[in-house]
């Protein structure tokens, strides 16, 4: 409006090019002013992201081009050798496979169980608030405490679970010492911890679906299963996409259960990719190689998130 006013003034006084020049200067000045204000308002976020995200990512990529101990000790330029080594390393492939299994397992189970619990606890049940709180509680506990609790439960010799099994005359199990059982066990522990979050998000989504939809479906003769299939599930797809993407990104980066409960064992069965990177950096002091692994992980997560969006977004009903 101000610019229009200036133009009107220039036309009425008939000052020609001088007026246009004044108008341009004023308009540019105002734009510059607005840009300055915008950047000023954005600057805390820009500085924050630059210092804590973009700079470390750049530094990590730089370090990945060196062998040895870039950033702390002696190193030499190695180009993309670290990337080539990583792609040829069978242990990297094994840890990627374990990580994908873990992330998909946790995400799928969290969605299925979280949705089931949300549907159940969305009904008028006695004590449902307390039950919701109990289910959500593990989510707010530190993984260190969760690890200690489950180690005490699953220890093959002193654990509570094997004690209970033995009391019922059932065979005891090597929960954490069996290579084929260890990964499913830590998936189950993570689901136990995280399922409350999925349940809470689904509950919020369920409560936002208007009851009119169900009434209309009911009048049309839809059974409860059909109501879920044709009303509830389509309207929950944005929530499912959100949980799936957030959970996958989180679980692909997860280190705590493998580090705290099994230390990557037995025989590398639970060596998640983050633990592999962590050990390369802090145990082997192979900083350049660990940086290359981290960068590959970044690309892997980016790729998986992109695929998730492409696959799930097709069916999302907003």
């Amino acid at each position: 409006m101000a610019a229009g006013g200036s133009m009107g003034a220039a036309a009425s006084t008939g000052t020609g090019s001088g007026a246009r020049s004044l108008f341009r200067t004023r308009r540019l000045g105002r734009r510059a002013q607005q840009t300055l204000i915008a950047y000023s308002l954005l600057s805390p976020a820009i500085i924050y992201f630059t210092v804590y995200f973009f700079y470390p990512i750049g530094l990590e990529f730089w370090a990945s081009l060196f062998s040895g101990q870039p950033l702390i000790g002696e190193s030499r330029f190695a180009g993309f050798d670290n990337y080539v080594t990583a792609l040829q390393d069978a242990r990297v492939r094994q840890s990627v496979f374990a990580t994908l299994t873990y992330a998909i397992g946790v995400t799928t189970a969290s969605i299925a169980i979280g949705l089931g619990l949300a549907l159940l606890l969305n009904q008028r049940l006695p004590g449902r608030t307390a039950i919701r709180a109990v289910i959500f509680f593990p989510y707010i506990i530190s993984f260190v405490i969760v690890a200690l609790i489950w180690q005490a439960i699953l220890d093959p010799y002193t654990g509570i679970l094997n004690g209970v099994l033995a009391n019922f005359g059932m065979p005891t199990q090597n929960w954490l010492n069996d290579s084929s059982a260890a990964l499913p066990v830590i998936i189950a522990i993570t689901v136990w911890k995280d399922v409350g979050y999925a349940m809470l998000i689904y509950l919020a989504a369920l409560q936002s679906i208007p009851s009119d939809f169900y009434e209309a479906a009911s009048i049309d003769g839809a059974s409860p299963a059909q109501q879920f299939r044709y009303v509830t599930w389509p309207l929950l797809t944005p929530t499912t996409l959100f949980i799936a993407v957030v959970s996958m990104i989180g679980q692909l980066q997860e280190i705590a259960p493998a580090y705290l409960i099994t230390n990557g064992g037995p025989a590398d069965a639970t060596r998640l990719f983050s633990l592999h990177v962590f050990e390369a950096a802090f145990f082997e002091l192979n900083i350049g190689y660990a940086s290359a692994l981290s960068f590959l992980m970044f690309l892997l997560i980016l790729g998986i998130t992109f695929v998730q969006f492409r696959l799930l977004n097709r069916d999302v009903s907003y």
Binding site: Q151, Y157, T262, G265
Partner: peptide, 15 residues
């Protein structure tokens, strides 16, 4: 005993 996989090395002492 089969040593318990993990980062807790106090298991044998506790037993």
């Amino acid at each position: 005993t089969t040593p318990v996989a993990g980062s807790d090395y106090e298991g044998p002492q506790k037993l």
